[in-house]
């Protein structure tokens, strides 16, 4: 299936990626080519076939409901690109 530049722009927003003009162009070509190949799946008769999300369909794996220490705050924040002593810092969300 052909993918348009507008499709790619929309998906780039969903995927939280900022793409340059060149990347948008390349991505439109590449994704069209790959999706056209993947369209091969349409010819398979999958009527009544259960989707298989996992190779080993283990279900109901329970952990003991007990209190355990979690990652200490200092360690959890150690790799943060922006932080103060208590949490993560991000750029302003409202009002630029």
């Amino acid at each position: 299936m052909a993918i348009t530049r507008a499709d790619v722009e929309k998906v780039a927003l969903l995927a939280r990626l900022q793409l340059t003009d060149g990347e948008l162009k390349m991505m439109t070509t590449d994704l069209s080519q790959i999706v056209t190949y993947v369209d091969l799946l349409a010819e398979v008769d999958t009527e009544g076939v259960e989707p298989m999300a996992h190779a080993v369909e283990v279900s109901n794996v329970f952990a003991e409901d007990e209190v355990r220490p979690s990652l200490p705050r200092e360690q959890a924040l150690a790799n943060a690109p922006g932080r103060n002593e208590r949490g993560y810092l991000v750029p302003p969300v409202l009002g630029g």
């Binding site: 998906v11 780039a12 927003l13 939280r16 900022q18 793409l19 302003p92």
Partner: peptide, 23 residues
């Protein structure tokens, strides 16, 4: 600002094949 931070960070941090697969 936050969405643009995500988008720029990911655009700078990921290479072309990773971007292609995410897309």
């Amino acid at each position: 600002g936050l969405v643009r931070m995500y988008r720029r960070s990911r655009a700078e941090g990921f290479g072309p094949e990773v971007k292609r697969r995410i897309m």
